[in-house]
Amino acid sequence: MALNNLSNRYSDLGRRQDALPTTEDALKIRRELPKTNLGNLARALNNMGKFFSDLGRHQEALAPTEDAVKIYRELAKTNPAYLGNLANSLNSLGYVELELGQPAIARDAFEKALKLYRPLATSNRVFQEDLQRTQNNLDELNRNEGIRTGAKQVLEATNVSYLPQGDPLTPVKRAVVLLWPTFSGKNAGVGLLGTGFVVRRQGDRAWIVTALHVVRDLESNALATKVEAELFTGPLPAGLVAPRVEVLLSQGQALRASGDEPILLEVRGLPPDIQPLQLATTTAQGVLMVVGHPSKPGPWTVVSYPLLKTTEQALLLDGGLDPGASGSPVLSASRQVVGVVYDSPEVTKSRPIPQVWAFPVNALKAKMAP
């Protein structure tokens, strides 16, 4: 157990070359012990598969990941407490199979994981993020396979024919993007989706803002390996998918060691009609509007919130938001940005009403200063 914990710590620190031999040592010991705790053996096997994947050695990741699935499946037959572990190992298996060019096998693994996660997430909030990550992995697989096989086509980024006509919020929605981050490590694959919005533009170059945790793994503090920004198009017919642009990330960006903050990221290839949202010069007050991508009810949702309180560090809004809305702009009645959403914490006895927390616009302006 100590060796397994050490390997996880190495992984969190980005020392993947050190994590793998430590896990191998843990496995060697576990295989020699009486098989009284197969759960720990499966955990070590699953970790080994993830460490091999992190190093790009996907073929070597396959066998230990498959072994972990087999053990967890047997354990779950008599002990439902292992269903979450089984779902996690199936999601890991889907990622490995996808990297090995086996999309059909990967899809089957993701779907089996989702079938397990859904009832678990209903009764336990701990599994809700796992459910969302697995669903995102499956959605990304289906999108990419549809494009690869010709069953789907990507709408041209400059095609505005599907945008809602007469909606005064269409220009705002065009400036708000849906962020698809991809991570390595223990949660390898597509992570939790987030929101960003355009705040500056110079020709083909533009800059979006989001909350740092959208594009950084909270355990290892490593930035995502890839982030794509999906553009608002309005409802599309079957066979068409929304365009995306690549977000430029730099591991050398000046970021705080831990915690959260607004982060400014560069994008290229935005169509000319997408223009930056204007930043407010006055204090936030009254009823404010959030445009973003909560997992419920869905992308480009517009919700109004009364302002509860303003401090130098945060705006507190009266109401709740689901995951995915982090990075959303908080807008005044004149549609100027007064804040950036970063959390909607769980209701507790000490905080009995749902709230949305946002960085004030001055925190964003500080990031944009030369």
Rank of each mutant, 00 (worst) to 15 (best):
D139C: 07
D139N: 15
E140P: 08
E140L: 10
L141E: 01
L141A: 07
N142T: 11
N142R: 14
N142V: 15
R143D: 14
N144Q: 15
E145T: 10
G146D: 10
G146E: 06
T149R: 11
G150F: 13
A151F: 05
K152T: 14
K152W: 15
L155A: 04
E156I: 00
E156Y: 00
A157M: 06
T158I: 12
S161H: 04
S161Y: 02
Y162F: 15
Y162N: 03
G166K: 10
G166H: 12
D167P: 06
L169V: 09
T170E: 09
T170F: 03
P171Y: 06
V172G: 00
V172K: 02
A175V: 05
V177R: 02
L178G: 04
L179D: 01
L179N: 02
P181L: 08
T182C: 06
G185P: 10
K186P: 05
G189S: 10
G191Q: 09
G191T: 03
L193M: 08
T195L: 00
G196F: 10
G196P: 00
F197I: 04
F197L: 11
V198K: 01
V198Q: 03
V199L: 09
V199G: 02
R201S: 01
R201Q: 05
Q202H: 09
G203Q: 11
A206L: 05
A206W: 07
W207R: 03
L212V: 06
H213M: 06
H213Q: 05
H213P: 01
V214C: 05
V215A: 04
V215Q: 04
V215M: 06
V215P: 00
L218T: 15
E219N: 13
S220K: 02
N221H: 14
A222Y: 03
A222S: 11
L223Q: 14
L223S: 11
K226N: 06
K226Y: 01
V227M: 08
E230C: 04
L231R: 02
F232Y: 15
T233N: 00
L236D: 12
L236W: 09
P237S: 08
L240C: 01
V241C: 03
E246G: 08
V247W: 03
L248Y: 12
Q251K: 11
Q251G: 13
G252F: 02
G252N: 11
Q253Y: 10
Q253F: 07
Q253C: 07
A254D: 15
A254Q: 15
L255H: 08
L255C: 09
R256Y: 07
R256S: 07
G259A: 12
G259D: 13
G259P: 11
D260R: 08
D260A: 12
P262N: 08
P262R: 11
I263A: 02
